[in-house]
Simulated assay, not measured.
Amino acid sequence: MPFIRSGSPDTQLFYEDFGAGPPIVLLHGWPLSGRFWEGQVRALVEAGHRVVCPDRRGFGRSAQPWEGYDYDTFAADLTALLLALNLEDAVLVGHSTGCGDVVRCAASGAVRPRAVVLADPVLRLDPDTDPTVADDLTDAGLGYRIAMLDDVLRRLFSADGRPSLDQATHRYLLGLAAAASPKGGIDAITAWAHSRFTRDLTHLKPPTLIVHGASDAFAPFESGPVQIAALIPHVVRVEIPHAPHAAPFTHAEQWTRILLDFLA
């Protein structure tokens, strides 16, 4: 299986690499893995792209070190992957909390991505934002981790007050989330609760697409896509009606078409 090594502490990071053509890197958010992008991989490869799906440290098939679950390290991991695979000019796509990795990597200047795509971004801007929701998740994760993950997935995939997943798919995704590092999963909550991305967003140079579900039931407490878009120099924002926070998964065909239209 393909791995690279990155970071401090030195960590083995798993990735999948399919197809040939202009590269697209798909980065998942908390608490899932690169398998979140199943609905995009085939369509993008068939559209003539090379598609790379890494697992963030602590998640999926990547190693689970005790430390390193902060956005500077997440961004350094992504940069290491891009340099190792010669993908400095790739399109970088992030979902949810994974958008922080993408934004910080792209804004650093270490690589020069062709474009940036933020799917349902969870990016804090205001240092006074109430961290209560993240604190509640942390407390629940320390005492009842699997139950907390089960509840989170229901919110990630719910729109207009209704669940979007069948029971079998929900169980599959819960298994992916449960297999992640218990320590890393909690630390990752703290990272996105207390990191600020205003400066990173204002330093984004590539064309940027923001795609978000209009019925996001997971992150209404975050700075919204409108405020995020206002900070980015070259940005297009698209809203998918009646879609949840996990719109790339639940509305895969529509979401992928929006991405390909943007790249065209």
Results as ranks from 00 to 15, higher is better:
L92M: 15
A110E: 13
A159L: 07
S164R: 15
A168E: 14
A168L: 12
Y172C: 10
T129I: 05
L174F: 00
A177Y: 04
P121L: 04
D120I: 04
G100D: 12
L118A: 07
A140P: 02
D166N: 07
Y172R: 15
L173P: 06
G94A: 02
L78S: 12
G141N: 02
P127L: 10
H95V: 13
D101C: 15
A115L: 13
V152A: 13
D160G: 01
L87C: 15
A107V: 14
Y144E: 15
R104K: 12
R124I: 04
L125N: 00
A75D: 03
V102R: 10
L176D: 00
C99G: 13
V102A: 14
V102M: 14
D101V: 15
L82K: 07
A178Q: 05
S108P: 01
V103E: 00
F157M: 13
D126I: 04
A180L: 10
D150W: 09
D135A: 10
V117H: 01
L83S: 06
L118E: 12
V93Y: 09
A90I: 13
T129S: 08
V122M: 13
D150N: 15
C99Y: 12
R112S: 13
A177R: 02
D151I: 04
A177C: 06
A147F: 00
T79H: 02
V91C: 11
L123S: 08
H95I: 14
R145E: 00
F74C: 07
A115E: 07
P163K: 05
C105P: 05
V116L: 14
D139I: 08
L83W: 01
A84R: 12
I146V: 15
G161K: 05
P131Y: 00
A168P: 00
R124P: 07
E88R: 09
A147G: 11
D136C: 05
P182H: 03
G161S: 10
S158A: 15
D128Q: 14
L85V: 10
Q167A: 15
L149W: 03
P131D: 05
Q167L: 13
L125I: 02
L176P: 04
Q167F: 08
G94Q: 08
A178K: 02
G109I: 11
V117D: 06
L85R: 04
L149G: 05
S164C: 15
P121D: 04
R112W: 14
D89L: 02
L81H: 11
R145W: 00
A76W: 01
I146D: 11
L87K: 04
F157Q: 02
M148Q: 06
L137H: 11
S158M: 12
Y172K: 14
Q167I: 04
G161N: 06
P113G: 02
L137F: 15
A106Y: 07
G100C: 09
S181G: 09
G175C: 09
G100H: 11
A80V: 03
R154E: 03
S96I: 05
V103Y: 00
L137T: 01
S181F: 03
S158Y: 07
A80G: 01
L123T: 14
A75C: 01
A90G: 12
